[in-house]
Amino acid sequence: MRLDLVDVFVNGALSGNPLAVVHGADGLSGEAMQSLARWIGFSETTFLLTPTHPEADYRVRIFTPTLELPFAGHPTLGSAYAWRAAGGVAKGARIMQECGVGLVPVRAEQGRLAFRAPPLRRSGPLSEVELAAALAQLRLAPGDVIEAVHVDNGPPWQLLRLSSAQAVLAVSPEATAREVVDLGLIAPSDASGIDWEIRGFFTGPGGVLVEDPVTGSLNAGAAIYLYESGLATGDYVAAQGRKVGADGRVYVSRDTEGVWIGGEVRAVSAGGELSSE
């Protein structure tokens, strides 16, 4: 089996979200995949498999160190990049990924890859109980939040919109996760070349709250929310990761086919041999 390490949503060297991609993983059990993802320790590790859908170019299973996800954004772009770099040729005009939420198209654009955002499985405002829990976890007051909504597209993201990028960057959440939730923060930015500032948090091993460097699924859910609410109308750029030493860029657009989440992917290590033992 081949193991690639790639960096997704980069804005310079080692500035995005790392991903491990295992090729030819049909012989691995789900338990073996989970064990390897835990050992590697990245936010996600993906396993490329023979597709079962006739339109798909490959099938992917996506694991965090503790669980399997039906969909995730930076693993989608990183897997597509690694599959193509290993000689994969799409059946059609676009790469078609098969994963837990179904088929996800990936296209090349301006030196980047972009996936079409899957539809939200849940939207609408957080309940009073959900909002109270999110505020406590993030150590925010009710007046700090302009709007709080569900943007669940596989991961059950809860998105809180604040007044400014400075307010987003100033948030200092509790280090221990109160419950298993995925929390996102977003606000408009006045920095050059950046339209929105985003941060994303999830529950890691041992119940620790982990901040993700750059999160494709959160950006995908946030984009649908921004477009549907009229807060975004044209293409925009989101920044994420500056509080954890990253500096990712996410390029978002919308056309008649849907919302597209794009970013640059770079190889860090390619073609390593992974033992099956």
Rank of each mutant, 00 (worst) to 15 (best):
E98L: 05
T76L: 11
V168Q: 03
G12C: 12
I146L: 15
D235K: 04
F42Q: 12
V89Y: 01
G272P: 00
L135Q: 07
V89D: 04
G41A: 10
Y236D: 08
V129D: 12
A114M: 06
E277M: 12
D152Q: 01
T52G: 14
K91D: 02
A148C: 08
W196Q: 00
V180H: 14
P125M: 04
G78V: 09
A93P: 07
G271T: 05
W39K: 03
D247G: 13
V210P: 02
H150V: 02
A93C: 05
Q110W: 03
A222Y: 03
A117S: 15
D195Y: 02
L113Q: 01
A90S: 15
G73H: 13
E128Y: 01
A134T: 02
R38L: 01
V168L: 10
G234E: 13
V129W: 03
Y225D: 10
G241T: 14
R61D: 01
L28H: 11
G271N: 05
G16T: 06
E277F: 14
T176G: 06
V210T: 12
Q34F: 13
Y81K: 10
D182K: 06
A132T: 09
G143Y: 02
A223T: 12
R139Q: 15
F115G: 12
P70D: 15
Y81E: 11
A117Q: 09
V171K: 01
A222G: 02
S79Q: 00
A136F: 04
P65R: 11
A32P: 07
V181Y: 02
S15F: 04
A13Q: 04
V106S: 10
F9V: 07
A13S: 09
G27R: 13
G92H: 10
A114F: 05
L77K: 09
G24Q: 12
A141G: 08
C99W: 01
E68T: 01
E179G: 08
P142L: 06
E55G: 04
L131D: 03
P105F: 11
Q158D: 07
D255Q: 10
A13L: 06
E147D: 13
L113Y: 07
Y225K: 00
P125C: 05
R116E: 07
A32M: 13
E98V: 04
